[in-house]
Amino acid sequence: MNLIAKQTYSKVIREVSSIEQRDTEQERTMYLYDDKVVTQYREFKIHDVLDISYRFIGDDGGLLYLHTNNGVYPYIVRSSPKAFVEAFKEFQKTL
């Protein structure tokens, strides 16, 4: 298991009480290994990942999309995931 690339992403946690709603943003890291892609709570086998793409939304970043056999998983990114996506596409050519 060799690390190929990593990408930071954000997760917004919404806490609701009887009198207020509070949003907390956590910074997390996605790891691309030669046999899997790992996020904080999910792990995808590399053969189940069909593609990785991203779309910028305004000036605050955008969304990184992990296209898998089980659906599409969006992740909020604050910095460009271009290097991460290109690393995946280059590695995918070797499979």
Rank of each mutant, 00 (worst) to 15 (best):
L66Y: 05
S18V: 12
R14D: 05
G62I: 02
D51G: 00
G71K: 04
R78F: 05
I57W: 06
S79V: 08
S17P: 03
K89P: 03
F88R: 01
K45T: 04
V77S: 04
V49Q: 05
G58Y: 08
N70E: 11
G71N: 01
D59V: 06
I19N: 11
Q7T: 02
V85F: 06
T29N: 04
A83E: 11
S17R: 10
M1F: 05
M30A: 14
T8W: 02
D35H: 11
Q26H: 13
L32N: 05
T39G: 06
D23N: 15
A87K: 00
E20A: 14
Q7A: 01
E43R: 05
K93D: 07
L63S: 12
L50Y: 11
K93C: 06
S79W: 00
Y73H: 10
E90S: 09
G58M: 04
V72S: 10
Q21P: 08
R55F: 00
F91I: 05
L3T: 09
S10H: 11
H47K: 14
L95K: 03
V12D: 07
P74T: 07
E43V: 04
Q7Y: 01
E25S: 15
I57K: 10
T8H: 07
V77C: 10
V37K: 00
D59M: 08
S53I: 04
D35F: 11
E25T: 15
R42Y: 15
G62M: 05
G62E: 08
R22G: 04
T68Y: 01
F91H: 11
I13S: 10
E27H: 13
L63R: 13
R28N: 13
E15R: 12
R28E: 10
Y54C: 03
E27L: 12
F91Q: 13
N2F: 11
N2A: 10
F84S: 02
R42S: 13
M1T: 02
I4D: 04
Y73N: 01
T29E: 06
I57G: 09
I57V: 12
Q21A: 12
R55W: 04
Q26D: 12
E15H: 14
P74Y: 08
R28C: 14
E90H: 04
S53T: 12
I13D: 06
A87D: 09
L66N: 09
E27Q: 14
Q21T: 15
V72K: 10
I46L: 12
R55K: 09
Y41G: 02
Q40S: 14
Q40F: 03
T94D: 01
N2D: 10
I52V: 10
R22L: 15
E43Q: 09
F44L: 02
L95Q: 15
S10F: 06
T94Q: 14
F44M: 00
E86N: 12
K6Q: 11
R55M: 05
T68N: 10
E27Y: 13
T24Y: 12
Y41H: 06
K93A: 14
E43C: 08
Y54Q: 06
S79E: 07
